[in-house]
Design a protein around this nucleic acid. Structure first.
Lengths: 163, 163
DNA sequence: GAAATGAATGAGAATAACTTTCAATTAGGT
DNA sequence: ACCTAATTGAAAGTTATTCTCATTCATTTC
């Protein structure tokens, strides 16, 4: 649960990575938006305000590095770009609710899947060590609206499904 | 549960879509590989053997059309390309096991999530109409080598090209 | 304290997976 | 057979991301 600058910098140091000003600015921005599931481009826009000379490639490289170090988790919410969140130890207990109208991602905690995992493990011989559960629907704020044209949600056509 | 050529052709007809030879070839290939979660490019390679003049854009367009008609389901398994499977009525009861070593995708049926959905609905006001559950692990055929050397945890974001 | 060395950076080119454009072809009704 | 809108292939365009490479920066070495 590494959610503060000091601790992350220490990890970088330990692994012989340099603490460049760019990395610090990126980390601070990530920490200031730790609930926002930012994409690389969104993060770049934020970071550019602090340091206009920073390059997009550096943002991508830093995100890759932080994901490699398991500080961040690279996620895919189906909108065509990767999004990042801080990695927690209990990834097994937190899922995502994705609003197909506004694209907002919120989180939900639960551990109902543990039993399911061991059942699958037993039945299929598949050695599970992670899962990824997403719920698609319409959040309270958007009830009634249809697809958001800017984000392109939903990628799945379930909103129009006849059931 | 439209898994045969006749039925699909009828749907296309009903919706005023033309039954071009390209579409027929693509449909046949999809039906012949209905368990393979093909990507557009993979399907293109297969289809080109029957009809070398077919264009990649046509494959993409046909996949889009079939997804739009809810005949196919467009899926994202985290390898950077969309993959397709025939849509079943009971998508709510089938999940995916993704091998982080060889990239193979297999399916698993279950309906434990229904109760979870209504609970979330009640608690958050989020009106859920679909979900997407993936398990990451190592299949029976592979012995787990795909771990992040720093942590020993599996790499969720690793890209596995299917050959 | 300057030089050497390697990591990290920015800019822009490259890539991969699509998507769009557009002129030419064709399915399906008449 | 004819008409017309739908469909197609080829190629250009787009978008997110990665790569290349010359330059800069931080450390270590002298």
């Amino acid at each position: 649960m590494v959610h503060e600058l000091e601790a992350i910098c220490q990890i970088l140091n330990e692994q012989q990575y340099k603490l460049t000003p760019q990395r610090k600015v990126i980390l601070k921005a990530l920490l200031n938006h730790s609930n926002d599931h930012l994409s690389a481009e969104e993060l770049y826009e934020i970071v550019k305000r602090q340091n206009p000379d920073i390059g997009l490639a550096t943002v991508y490289r830093t995100l890759d590095l932080l994901a490699e170090l398991d500080i961040l988790q690279k996620m895919n919410f189906g909108d065509g770009r990767s999004r990042y969140e801080f990695n927690t130890q209990d990834i097994h207990h937190h899922h995502h609710l994705i609003c197909t109208s506004c694209g907002k991602v919120t989180e939900f905690d639960d551990d109902l899947l543990e039993s399911l995992e061991s059942m699958i493990q037993r039945r299929t011989g598949f050695d599970i060590n992670d899962h990824d559960l997403k719920f698609y629907g319409v959040c309270k704020d958007c009830s009634g609206q249809d697809v958001n044209p800017t984000t392109g949600y939903p990628r799945k056509t379930t909103v129009h499904k006849t059931r």
